[in-house]
């Protein structure tokens, strides 16, 4: 059985093209950098570094989605989203530069081990994941990490340039979330046998392990960082809740088995009393912290494409 789902992806692609912005549009030397006090700088530096890397992981996710997109238009949209996530990482790196958070070489700071694991796993297996799995995971990551982290940042920092940058980023992210869930609707409206076959294909050991070893501690590690900064973790949970809220608005998304799995995980993430934290997620954060970065091999080439320079000549 299959149903029909109608959404004008061509119009969305045109909007995406019309709304492009560049780092060169922003005056990085405008007044306001002095609002970043030494105390705030020390607190925000690791947070900003995490944010840059999360955007970069998101970028790689969209690169894999582009290889799986069901139509040429959606493929093109994902290619733009890949570039936009990279742009967000570049812009956040430029903000770090503005605030004096980068070293002499201007290079991006090292990601933490959980982000490194996510990069490695996404690079090795992202392109082989069936569309249903990846298309469900990416919106959860975007809602949870991007959404929550950006909100914290804007609450903490008063620099007008930062707010200008994040007006652009949030407007891009809103389109990403819209498309993410429209694609879920499109997949959900497809033939049931295809959904089932792809879902069974998702039960490969590397996918299940990836979810447990990489994704689970990634969210909890982020929560630990947020708590360490003295911020309420409830905001992260509110962001995770958005995944379920938006997903339940669709007519066909609930036909996707992977959506139910991740929704169940999201429900456990936001329930602090759930044994999920005590027995799985928190021990995984501790366990992964013992993994030496060396076993992950040399960094992937796409990691070196990050730059804080608005102009390349």
């Amino acid at each position: 059985m299959s149903t029909t789902f109608d959404y004008d992806f061509d119009a969305m692609l045109q909007t995406i093209k019309d709304k492009q912005w560049s780092l060169a549009d922003i005056d990085w030397d405008a007044p306001g950098a002095e609002t970043m006090t030494d105390e705030l700088r020390a607190k925000m530096q690791p947070f900003m570094a995490d944010l840059v890397w999360i955007e970069h992981v998101g970028a790689r996710g969209f690169a894999s989605l582009a290889k799986k997109a069901p139509t040429p238009t959606i493929k093109r949209i994902y290619e733009y989203f890949h570039a936009e996530e990279q742009k967000h990482a570049n812009a956040e790196l430029a903000l770090m530069k503005r605030w004096g958070m980068l070293g002499e070489d201007g290079k991006a700071p090292e990601p933490n081990i959980n982000v490194k694991l996510a990069i490695k796993v996404l690079d090795d297996y992202g392109d082989t994941l069936p569309l249903t799995g990846l298309a469900t995971l990416i919106p959860l990551l975007e809602c949870a990490l991007d959404g929550a982290l950006v909100k914290f940042l804007l609450d903490e920092v008063s620099d007008p340039v930062c707010h200008e940058v994040f007006r652009h980023i949030n407007s891009d992210e809103a389109r990403h979330i819209t498309v993410d869930f429209k694609v879920l609707e499109l997949i959900g409206a497809g033939p049931l046998h295809k959904l089932l076959i792809e879902s069974i294909a998702l039960l490969q050991p590397q996918v299940v392990l990836g979810l447990i070893v990489v994704f689970t501690p990634l969210i909890n590690k982020m929560r630990d960082n947020i708590v360490a900064m003295g911020l309420p973790e409830q905001k992260l949970y509110n962001a995770v809740k958005r995944f379920t809220t938006i997903g339940s608005r669709g007519d066909y998304t609930s036909r996707i088995p992977a959506y139910h799995v991740l929704r169940a995980q999201a429900a456990m993430v936001i329930d602090r009393t759930s044994p999920y934290h005590r027995l799985l997620a928190d021990p995984m954060v501790r366990l992964t912290s013992f993994i030496p970065a060396k076993v992950l091999g040399k960094p992937q080439a796409w990691v070196e494409e990050l730059t804080h320079e608005p102009i390349a000549s």
């Binding site: 093209k17 492009q20 912005w21 560049s22 780092l23 060169a24 093109r76 290619e79 733009y80 570039a83 936009e84 990279q86 742009k87 570049n90 812009a91 494409e305 730059t307 320079e309 608005p310 102009i311 390349a312 000549s313």
Partner: peptide, 22 residues
Amino acid sequence: SWPIYAFVPEGVRSAEGIEHHV
């Protein structure tokens, strides 16, 4: 492989937010 979205007097702008001068 980033898509180009605009031309400027000095070069092109691509969607990863960078202006390439050529």
